[in-house]
Design a protein around this nucleic acid. Structure first.
Lengths: 186, 186
DNA sequence: ACCTGAACACCGTTCAAGT
DNA sequence: ACCTGAACACCGTTCAAGT
């Protein structure tokens, strides 16, 4: 939010997008301990202090990353209609976002100040959708969200190996189908 | 494993149990960033270097904590009989252990070397128990374990407030009952 | 056998100062 | 407006040295 207009890199510095790209790369390579302000500065040829004007402190950096990575989850495709499809789509996109950077999810849980509004929007939309399918929407929302988070955590130990991550994603889809079938069955 | 015989405090130092007690307190108070080797040393009136002979490095400390906190999960009470009760009991005890120190679970996920054998035993026992109830034991094991982990993560944001943690535990029990009922229904 | 001091290579963050 | 140097208060870990 520090520079909402986006890419115009000022003077000699780096743009906000460049910072976030490099931060995600660092997170994917080295996990939560890999993404330090100083390592990020080294990679970008800047000093760590310059970030405080762009993304704020370390928690602000994580929040900015969260906004970027999870934003796509809320972009509902036009063809998706009806509560069951919308629920399945929302959770599939959420898991896809988590799976793309599992270390980010872990880092956010470890840094409560980093929780962005996007996550809250996702759970709210899910609750609304579930209200049309069951008389216990909050119970099922907790089940589905907690399950998605746990499956996301499991991906941290895949440690960036594409084959393993893909297998775990397939398993998540199967589990989600199973849960949604039970939900639909009443 | 450095001193399996337990409590005999040598010379002027502190015992292994004292170290683990203080480490858990630090974790509960200050989260993952609160438990540092140096803060632990300060609290115990020792230097940080003395721990390397008792519990190894930071990951070793977390592994020792994991062993202690999760050990009770595997202690099946005598009165518990039949797969449904055993599954429900095992998961309830697991959630209870996670809920007692949610920050430990988070720290372990962030430190893969800290995974102890106890966790593996828990998932193995769960898989065995599920084999007697469904023809998709691995699918249901993943659902139940991932869900328990996600619910555990949610407890991190309760931040040690007993009332909120208790409410979330009640919600977990309800969700677990719901899931196990669907499992039993085939 | 156990503990420590000193050292090394790191951290996040602030703030006055530079351009 | 943006970036930096220097400083402050921290980290984990190693290793030779002490008792």
């Amino acid at each position: 939010m520090t520079r909402p207009r986006g890419r115009p890199a000022p003077g000699s510095g780096v743009s906000r997008d460049e910072i976030l790209d490099a931060a995600l790369a660092l997170l994917d390579e080295g996990g939560g301990q890999g993404l330090t302000m100083r390592a990020l500065a080294r990679r970008l040829g800047v000093t760590a202090m310059s970030f405080y004007r762009h993304v704020g402190d370390h928690a602000g950096l994580l929040r900015a990353l969260s906004d970027r990575v999870y934003a796509a989850v809320l972009e509902q495709p036009a063809g998706e209609q009806g509560a069951p499809e919308a629920i399945s789509g929302l959770l599939t996109r959420y898991h896809h976002a988590v799976a793309s950077h599992p270390q980010l999810t872990l880092a956010i849980f470890a840094t409560p100040e980093a929780f962005s509004g996007v996550t809250r929007h996702i759970t709210e939309r899910l609750t609304d959708l579930l209200a049309g399918m069951t008389d216990q929407p909050v119970l099922w929302r907790d089940i589905l969200v907690d399950h998605a988070h746990g499956a996301g955590l499991a991906l941290v130990s895949a440690h960036g190996e594409a084959a393993q991550a893909q297998a775990m994603t397939a398993q998540y889809r199967q589990a989600l189908d199973c849960l949604l079938a039970r939900l639909a069955a009443g």
